[in-house]
């Protein structure tokens, strides 16, 4: 390998860094001073593979993308070696076309980087001051209908900063799904009913419900309690409030009442 020569115990390497296989290819094209529209594929492929071999010799892990590109180069090379049929149409597509287009596209963006770097440096020489307001008199400076998500995020960040919450630490929390099972719900309903003298309506029972699931669960629990004869329900008219009371302190269990619920 023609890696940097050093016989000392602490070899020093200066490795150019590449942003990926396209970057490396462009570098090779530049070094060889060849026309990007007419890449000598055999030579460039050879140098490309040589570069990978060097890295491997240095025990560097080679990202998969580089290997994919190596395969692409070899494929192009082999396709170019194939003899063209004599009858081939004049404008037979050059196997290099796709690669050249990708290189040019990539080059266009990497060419813009210098400008971005200049702007970044310029901007870093400007200093702004933070807003002077306090949390209490903070007013949203946006029309409610024009607020964008990022505005809200910024406002939240500022509020957190003002409140002394460390915003460098990303706010993260695991919100567990509330696990309510039927048994818990049934116990809860019975507790509520036994605690009240005259029972309550179904509506009152689900006042604190936080989700649709909560309400559905309460309803299922009620049906189950009915089936077991623990609860008595009455509903004076269809769509009217469902009144519940506990059978323990009320009258006899009435098993057929649940039919009213299905009206």
């Amino acid at each position: 390998m023609n890696g940097p020569a050093s016989n000392g115990t602490h070899p020093r390497f200066t490795l150019p860094t590449f942003e990926g296989p396209l970057d490396l290819l462009l570098q090779l094209i530049r070094e060889n001073q060849v026309d990007i529209y007419d890449i000598p594929i055999a030579e460039i492929t050879r140098q490309y593979l040589e570069r990978l071999a060097q890295w491997r010799a240095l025990d560097l892990t080679i990202a998969g993308e580089y290997l994919v590109m190596a395969a692409t180069l070899l494929e192009i090379k082999s396709r170019m070696l194939l003899p063209k049929p004599a009858t081939a149409p004049e404008e037979d597509e050059d196997p290099r076309t796709d690669l050249v287009e990708r290189l040019l596209e990539y080059q266009r963006y990497s060419a813009a980087l210098e400008t971005f770097r200049e702007w970044e440096a310029f901007r870093q020489r400007l200093f702004f001051r933070a807003a002077t307001e306090t949390i209490d008199d903070y007013v949203l400076p946006y029309d409610a209908c024009k607020v964008r998500g990022e505005d809200l995020a910024r406002i939240l960040r500022r509020l957190l900063e003002n409140a002394g919450v460390d915003t460098a630490e990303p706010v993260s929390a695991i919100v567990p799904r509330q696990r309510t099972n039927l048994r818990m719900k049934m116990a809860e309903i019975l507790r509520a009913l036994r605690g009240s003298l005259h029972g309550c309506t179904f509506g009152e029972l689900v006042i604190g419900a936080t989700s649709r699931l909560d309400v559905v669960m309460a309803f299922l629990a009620l049906l189950e309690l009915l089936r077991r004869g623990k609860v008595k329900v009455t509903q004076r008219r269809s769509e009217g409030p469902i009144h519940l009371c506990s059978v323990d302190i009320g009258e006899e269990p009435g098993p057929a009442i649940s039919a009213e619920l299905y009206q």
Binding site: L26, I29, R30, E31, Q33, D35, A112, F116, E120, R123
Partner: peptide, 26 residues
């Protein structure tokens, strides 16, 4: 971050005409 007024200030992307070889390799 880049002290831009709006996106229209982005420089137009170079049309892919010049080759790296013409730009002169280091």
């Amino acid at each position: 971050y880049f002290a831009l007024r709006d996106l229209s200030e982005l420089p137009p992307l170079d049309a892919p005409t010049s080759t790296p070889a013409e730009d002169g390799g280091a």
